[in-house]
Amino acid sequence: MVEPLYEVLARSAFVSVSATLVASLIGIPLGTALALARVPGRSLLTAVVNTGMAVPTVVVGLAVAMVLWRSGPLGDLGLIYTVRGMIIAQVLVATPLITGITMAALQLLPPELPDQLRGLGANRRQLVVRMWIEARLPLLAAAMAGFGHAISEVGSSTIVGGNIHGHTQVMTTAIVENVGRGEFGVAIFYGVILLGLAFFVNGLLVSVQRRGLSWQRS
């Protein structure tokens, strides 16, 4: 049975948006801590994050699958070949990217800013919130980049999700499947839809950034 396109598209969006939200909740605070706090092991953590940004998604998928496999350490949770399992894999794909961009974004702010905010009486929470507001555009870019990375990846989705029709098939795995079957027309159509989604998301980002920049310049 061929699943309607909109269901595959909706599943893709759901998995990637959920993964991006979770990855942002982890990556933005982690990137902030690495950028601002003088914590022991900071250099090591930074190196791990930077390495994580370059890890192939298929390797992430393999690692997650081994953990979630029925005989694996978290096999009892029954997450292998499920949408939730795919979300976990995509969280691991997107988190290093969001963490790294967050770290860079905060480090690019004027270096005197944290001291100035402390010197005016900001507590830790007020300081962090204000730094996030100052870096709002690059932080948005970090989330968008995380989303782009998640929705376009195929390796971990295939391994962890299994590309099961009506359950775990997403746009990228559907493209791979159709190419495998020689259905190039369908694959290209799916590809164009995915491209359109990516274009829409990037357009949204550019629009928000332009609005923010024009206010700052005015």
Binding site: P110, E112, L113, D115, R118, G119, G121
Partner: peptide, 17 residues
């Protein structure tokens, strides 16, 4: 924080938001 709020520190570069 209570002590820091008795003090206002203006850094060399203005550090405006």
């Amino acid at each position: 924080v209570a002590l820091r709020r008795q003090v206002a520190y203006a850094t060399q570069r203005p550090g405006l938001l």
